[in-house]
């Protein structure tokens, strides 16, 4: 399976990186990580879907509100590579079990130091993932602001 963070890497490099991690099953309905947790590992999704949620007050109670969904080949938990290394969302395997490859930050950083060429490619891939998400959220935010302006200026 191709992983978005490993695009452009030689197959030997991909194998080396995947060997740094361990496979982990996430039972449907359970959390892979929660908002505010220490982010020590990055996760590559192998199977199933992971829902990312944020808490929101709904009718006086706190509910996990859907933010986005990540599917096989995509990564979750890149907070593990960005200070202050805390997850900013909650990740849940929603309807079906999921399987992820858990890559510990320390192992990754050691590999990056020893192998700057693949590290550079991974950094670029990560920039693409984060950049796309930023553009997406910026667009959604602007659409929401537009609606708010329309409501208040009507």
């Amino acid at each position: 399976m191709g992983h978005e963070l490993l695009n452009g890497l030689a197959s030997a490099e991909v194998k080396q990186i995947l060997n740094l991690g361990t496979r982990r099953n996430v039972t449907a309905g359970t959390a892979l990580f929660r908002l505010g947790d220490q982010a020590d590992s990055l996760f590559l999704i192998e199977r199933g879907r992971i829902k990312l949620t944020l808490p929101m007050r709904v009718r006086g109670g706190e509910e996990n509100i859907f933010v986005e969904e990540r599917s096989p080949g995509q990564a979750v938990g890149w907070s593990a590579l960005i200070p202050p290394y805390r997850f900013t969302l909650t990740a849940i395997a929603d309807l079906h079990d999921a399987e992820v490859i858990m890559l510990p930050r320390q192992a990754l950083l050691q590999y990056f130091e020893a192998n700057p060429a693949p590290a550079y490619k991974i950094a670029l891939n990560l920039a693409v993932v984060i950049g796309h998400r930023l553009q997406l959220l910026q667009t959604m935010w602007l659409r929401e602001v537009q609606r708010t302006v329309q409501v208040h200026s009507a």
């Binding site: 709904v58 509100i65 859907f66 933010v67 986005e68 553009q135 997406l136 959220l137 667009t139 959604m140 659409r143 929401e144």
Partner: peptide
């Protein structure tokens, strides 16, 4: 709410 977010994401995409 989830459907709303999905539709908004699709529109943003």
């Amino acid at each position: 709410i989830e459907n709303h977010v999905r539709m908004e994401q699709a529109a943003a995409e």
